[in-house]
């Protein structure tokens, strides 16, 4: 096998590799099968938690709320839910939203002095 043959093979391989990577990463990346809520931007994650609290206020289904929070990667969801409620308190947000988050945090077994006044 001549040296020129090997050079041509290597050149083709490098060009092909570059084209394959460009196509696979940029032109046609794989379907986002793994893009769950954990990949959401933080503000969307906060809203996702709020929606879970709203859903919990409607259906009173704690198991489903836990399952949804787990999909966000929250293994111990009580503290982050309470923390979000406190952030809304500090930002002067809607009391109804705060109450729903506080209720969910309490149902998850976590309360704080700041959110206690918003509990029934």
């Amino acid at each position: 096998m001549s040296r020129n043959f090997l050079r041509a093979l290597a050149l083709g391989g490098i060009i092909g590799l570059g084209l394959g990577l460009y196509y696979g990463w940029v032109v046609s990346p794989p379907e986002r099968v793994s893009s769950g809520p954990t990949a959401l931007r933080q503000d969307y994650k906060d809203d996702y938690v709020l929606m879970i609290a709203e859903a919990y206020s409607v259906d009173d289904d704690l198991a489903q709320a836990k399952s949804r929070l787990a999909a966000l990667g929250l293994k111990d969801p009580g503290p982050p839910v309470a923390a979000l409620a406190e952030r809304l308190i500090n930002a002067g947000q809607d009391n109804a939203d705060i109450r729903r988050l506080a209720a969910l945090a309490a149902a998850l077994g976590h309360t704080t002095p700041a959110i206690a006044p918003y509990l029934p």
């Binding site: 090997l6 590799l17 084209l19």
Partner: peptide
């Protein structure tokens, strides 16, 4: 040789981009 190299390289590139190290999405909406 060039064509064989291209095919092999393209296959390896796609395998890496789609299977071994697919795009990771973060901070998505």
């Amino acid at each position: 040789a060039l064509v064989i190299g291209l095919v092999l390289g393209l296959t390896a590139g796609l395998l890496y981009a789609w299977v071994i190290s697919p795009v990771q999405y973060t901070d998505i909406n």
